[in-house]
Design a protein around this nucleic acid. Structure first.
Length: 211
DNA sequence: CGTCCGATACACT
DNA sequence: GTGTATCGGACGC
């Protein structure tokens, strides 16, 4: 597929609720010594910094400090004792907001993607769910701080092929607070979108259409 | 398809 | 000490 231009810091510096749906259909390109892997995004979530109880930046700590920095930087965190999840810092400087990269379809580097996901059964599962997506791209904790706006960096975000994308919004997955806000954005009907799982204290919300 | 549940280690209180 | 922005397997429909 056509990858399009590399997205600039200006793209990421907009409000997180604008950036998040605009990331659907964009292509993440990871390049390591092992080779390239490219993933077209189909599912993301917005986390709105200190105003958002579900955000790691709700409190300013050592871990969340990266989110208080410039847009366009990577934040990778460790959860449940075994998984890594990747975020892109967005918004004007200091807003500490970020977009969690939840799912996508592998569009280049399939053999390497399979090697990084030995347990996967089907191709559509390779980057389905935030932990699988981070694994396919080879992203772990030490990658926190990567600047995706540096053309020489190991992770870039490209505009994609320009085909129109239908985006739906609904409640975020797995969060136990602020479960009512519709800040999960998915490509309608795409099979790589992960299953909805409500948080322990969350109640299910409705799904509407955006864009 | 859906629900239930354990694994596992770290950040934070 | 407590809770977690998850996953995959087991099971039932």
């Amino acid at each position: 597929m056509r990858l399009g231009r590399t997205l600039t810091r200006r793209f990421f510096a907009r409000d997180v609720t604008v950036v998040a749906p605009d990331l659907i259909g964009r292509v993440l390109v990871s390049t390591t010594e092992q080779g390239p892997v490219a993933v077209r995004l189909t599912e993301v979530e917005a986390y709105a910094g200190p105003l958002d109880p579900a955000s790691h930046a709700y409190r300013r700590t050592a871990r969340s400090e990266i989110m208080y920095g410039r847009a366009g930087h990577l934040y990778v965190y460790f959860v449940y004792g075994m998984h890594w999840c990747a975020n892109l810092v967005t918004g004007p400087d200091g807003t500490a907001s970020a977009v969690l990269l939840r799912a996508g379809e592998v569009v280049d580097g399939l053999p390497l993607a399979w090697a990084r996901r030995p347990g996967a059964r089907r191709e559509r599962d390779l980057a389905r769910g935030p932990a699988g997506l981070a694994a396919v791209l080879g992203l772990t904790g030490p990658d926190t701080g990567l600047d995706v706006c540096d053309p020489a960096g190991r992770l870039l975000v490209r505009a994609g092929d320009g085909h129109p994308v239908t985006v739906a919004a609904g409640p975020r997955v797995g969060v136990s607070t602020a479960a009512d806000v519709p800040w999960r954005f998915v490509e309608t009907g795409n099979p790589t979108v992960s299953a909805y799982r409500r948080g322990t204290r969350a109640t299910r919300g409705s799904v509407g259409t955006v864009g």
